[in-house]
Computed example of a mutant assay.
Amino acid sequence: MGSLYSFEKEKNYLVMTITGNYSYEDFIKYPKLIRNECLKEKMYKILVNVTPVIKTEIPLVELFFLGEHIANVLRDHIKLALLWDGEKHNRFLQKVASNRFALIRTFESDVHAKIWLMYDREDEPFIELKP
């Protein structure tokens, strides 16, 4: 079994929740689904929650290709906050995508993710709140 996804509409952004098992074949399709849903709803900020996904060790090369694909599909048109729990390579995906001009950031806390998502001053540094 691969992964499943669902979209919810919040006031100022969309939420995509992914569940099930990690599958590169599924995850490589998600950026286009995200873009299509954002265009359909005319909302260009999305919180993607992958914490329910059962992950094994994800190879760096897969994270690299996912990061490149996210950047190619979403570029700087859609702001994506990725909620990802404790995976040691999650920043690698963020670096690959953001180095290619994607507006993406990974978080372990949904509070921080939502604050960053709604923070519109990209030219100023975002300071995370410490719990």
Rank of each mutant, 00 (worst) to 15 (best):
H112Q: 13
E124A: 06
Y22W: 15
I115P: 00
K32N: 05
K55V: 15
L93E: 03
K32V: 07
G2S: 15
N49F: 02
K88C: 10
P59Y: 07
P125G: 01
Y30D: 01
L129T: 14
A113K: 03
E10N: 12
V111E: 01
T17V: 13
K11M: 01
I46E: 11
L60A: 15
K9F: 08
Y44N: 13
T19F: 07
F107E: 02
T17K: 15
Y13C: 01
Y5V: 04
D120G: 10
K88T: 12
N21D: 14
Y22A: 09
L129S: 09
I18P: 02
M1P: 13
S23H: 09
G67A: 10
K55F: 12
Y13H: 03
E57S: 12
D76P: 04
H112I: 06
W116R: 00
H69R: 13
H89N: 07
P125I: 05
K95S: 11
M16E: 10
I104N: 04
A113H: 03
L74K: 02
L4H: 09
K9Q: 12
M118S: 13
A71M: 10
I54F: 09
I115N: 01
I58L: 08
A113F: 06
S109C: 10
L80A: 06
R91W: 11
Y24T: 01
Y24C: 01
I104P: 07
I54T: 07
I58E: 05
L80F: 02
K42M: 14
R35W: 07
E37W: 10
H112F: 03
P59T: 06
W116A: 00
K55C: 13
A102R: 08
I46L: 08
V53C: 01
M1A: 15
